[in-house]
Design a protein around this nucleic acid. Structure first.
Length: 491
RNA sequence: CGGGAUGUAGCGCAGUUGGUAGCGCACCACGUUCGGGACGUGGGGGUCGUCUGUUCGAGUCAGAUCAUCCCGACCA
């Protein structure tokens, strides 16, 4: 891999190369779609498992809704259709036939659908059409469903994990009797995401509200977790929307309240996608490849034997199996790389590329001395330790690494957040990346003009960090403002 | 859809004024190696994106077409 620092001009190229070389994913033959390889999928599965558990702790249940959505469903909610219409894949026929002219198969013109079906770009519409049948009384509420699925958005330009035409995600859709309850749900879930990002992905995020311009199509409020990548750009890593009664009205979902009066249901939706994989890569990787947080690494420890003869290998593998069992007892996952056609140096480099947090090497010297070599991926340092009891050391080391890469990312972010109060300064500094905390007059017009001139958008109005409530003047219009918001150039 | 580039072995590339296709990596076999991306010897693999034309002859020239990538517009 070309030696490229994360902040170099070729960051994009570096990223693509890393995704492929770390064996996470590759471009598929289908336009804009990606193949997630087993190693990449193992990380995604781990993310899924952890998130799923957290959802269930809040009372959410999993369900599944159809891939195809009748076209008219999408047009029920005006803003929603506006937001997604331009990027939908449409199913128009249900049959193929042999080409009469002999060129393989063609679409059978007789099999045209009366109403076209849309491949879901998101499932609000089909789900609310279904919820209509589930809800009649206040006793039916709340409904808290989540689905793990794929969705498709016909993006003009795609990037592995960050923006692909098809992506995997979870989408939660909840129905509530009151506005307040729905808003609390949206807040609860964005905090689940923030907790996951911080404590598992080791990625610092800011929780905040989206400005009206950046809101989800059809939402009254969108909460977001925003992360900073190593090139200083912002990445929206997850969102949670308060949908008000928009979808209930569009799909006529009413319930009888305790007084017997009919009311429209209040809704939320929330989701995170395989984009989290992109965030994970861009947040921690270095010139030697991926750096995985121990909490998400498919193998937390990889063991590499260094051997000359088959007998020596056997002796080393026996020791490794012993250590593996001791680590497994602590819930630590271990991979023993016993391939005999590759040299140790090659394996070291390969596992570093794949981001395995801890590497253990045992060779002839170690057999004699009763030692092992332990190397950590985040700092690329290694040391020789006594074999006996090393499992305790490794257990602690994994926790250290988890904490250390979080701190590293947090320090990086801290170094790239600043308050800016003049427009000239803003224009200059925004090009270097990072978050700029600025006053904004709260209008759509100002936000759009800033975007047009600098490509920067309001990433969020921060709610749990970088809160800065103070009087000031809008950076662009000079009008009064009571708090700062975060501007950045984003993915 | 605008602007730029590229299609030759699994991957990365070379191929001169047109003469019948090569290099590195990877792969297979054997041997020597093995504490930071090993080396030797031998071997397998290509209708040069597609179509049409020019020519005795096209990877090379011309036209068309398809595809991919990068920079924008769109977006999680």
């Amino acid at each position: 891999m070309a030696k490229l620092t994360p902040r170099s001009e070729n960051y994009s190229q570096w990223y693509n190369e890393l995704v492929v070389k770390a064996d996470l994913a590759e471009q598929s033959a289908v336009r804009g779609c990606m193949v997630i390889k087993p190693y990449g999928y193992a990380i995604w599965e781990k993310m899924q498992r952890i998130l799923d558990e957290k959802f269930k702790e809040t009372g959410v249940q999993n369900a599944y809704f159809p891939l195809l959505i009748p076209k008219n469903f999408l047009s029920r909610e005006a803003e929603h259709v506006e937001g997604f219409a331009k990027e939908c894949a449409v199913v128009t026929h249900h049959r193929l036939m042999k080409d009469p002219e002999g060129n393989g198969v063609v679409v059978d013109p007789e099999a045209r659908l009366e109403e076209e079906l849309i491949i879901r770009p998101t499932s609000e519409t089909i789900i609310w059409n279904t919820y209509k049948n589930w809800i009649t009384s206040w006793r039916d509420l709340p409904i808290l469903c989540n689905q793990w699925c794929n969705v498709m958005r016909w993006e003009m330009r795609t990037r592995l994990f960050l923006r692909t035409a098809e992506f995997l995600w979870q989408e939660g859709h909840t129905a509530h009797a009151t506005s307040q309850e729905a808003q609390e749900e949206a807040i609860r879930m964005v905090n689940v995401y923030a907790d996951f990002a911080r404590n598992y992905m080791a990625m610092p995020v800011v929780v905040g509200h989206k400005s009206p311009n950046e809101r989800f199509a059809g939402a009254l409020d969108t909460l977001t977790i925003e992360a900073m990548m190593q090139d200083g750009k912002a990445l929206q890593a997850g969102t949670s929307h308060f949908l008000g009664q928009n979808f209930a009205k569009a799909f006529d979902v009413q319930f009888a309240n305790k007084e017997g009066a009919l009311e429209y249901v209040w809704a939320t939706s929330w989701g995170v996608s395989t984009r989290l994989m992109g965030a994970l890569i861009m947040c921690h990787s270095d010139d030697n490849g991926l750096v995985l947080p121990p909490a998400l690494a498919p193998h937390q420890v990889v063991m590499v034997p260094i051997f000359g003869s088959a007998e020596q290998l056997e002796a080393i593998l026996a020791k490794m199996e012993t250590l593996k069992a001791r680590l497994a007892a602590k819930g630590i996952s271990v991979k023993i790389d016993s391939r005999d056609n590759l040299r140790p140096g090659f394996k070291f480099a390969e596992w570093e590329m794949k981001g395995v947090p801890v590497r253990v090497a045992i060779g002839g010297r170690d057999l004699e001395n009763g030692t092992v070599e332990v190397a950590r991926r985040d700092t690329l340092t290694k040391e020789s330790l006594s074999f006996e009891g090393v499992e305790n050391y490794i257990e602690t080391l994994l926790k250290d690494i988890q904490a250390n890469i979080y701190k590293k990312a947090e320090d990086f972010r801290a170094a790239n957040v600043q308050k800016v109060d003049s427009w000239d300064e803003f224009k200059e500094k925004i090009q270097n990346g990072g978050f700029l905390l600025c006053h904004w007059d709260g209008t759509k017009e100002t936000e759009e003009k800033i975007k047009a001139e600098t490509k920067a958008t309001i990433r969020c109005i921060p709610e749990d960090s970088f809160i800065c409530e103070e009087e000031g003047k809008c950076i662009y219009s000079g009008k009064p403002s009571s708090r700062r918001v975060i501007f950045a150039i984003s993915y």
